[in-house]
């Protein structure tokens, strides 16, 4: 789950990792409920101009071969 870089081992580092793992578990419990809370945001249509901006960028880059 966590990528350990080889030079940063040691007990202090392991302790930090364990604390972060436990914190992450508790934060996931909150995250699950946050996802329910923000469900409607994900399900509603994205503002029209968001896609417009991207289309404009795609169109203008077509000439320049992206």
């Amino acid at each position: 789950m966590i990528e350990q870089s080889p030079k940063t081992t040691g007990s202090r580092r392991r302790e930090q990792t364990r604390a972060a793992d436990e914190a992450r578990l508790r934060q996931q419990a909150i995250g699950v409920r946050l996802r329910q809370l923000f469900d409607e945001v994900v399900n509603e249509p994205v503002p029209d101009d968001f896609l417009e901006i991207l289309r404009r960028a795609d169109d203008s880059s077509k000439g320049g071969a992206r």
Partner: peptide, 8 residues
């Protein structure tokens, strides 16, 4: 990891 611990 430190940021997550701080958030907690």
């Amino acid at each position: 990891e430190q940021l997550i611990a701080e958030a907690q």
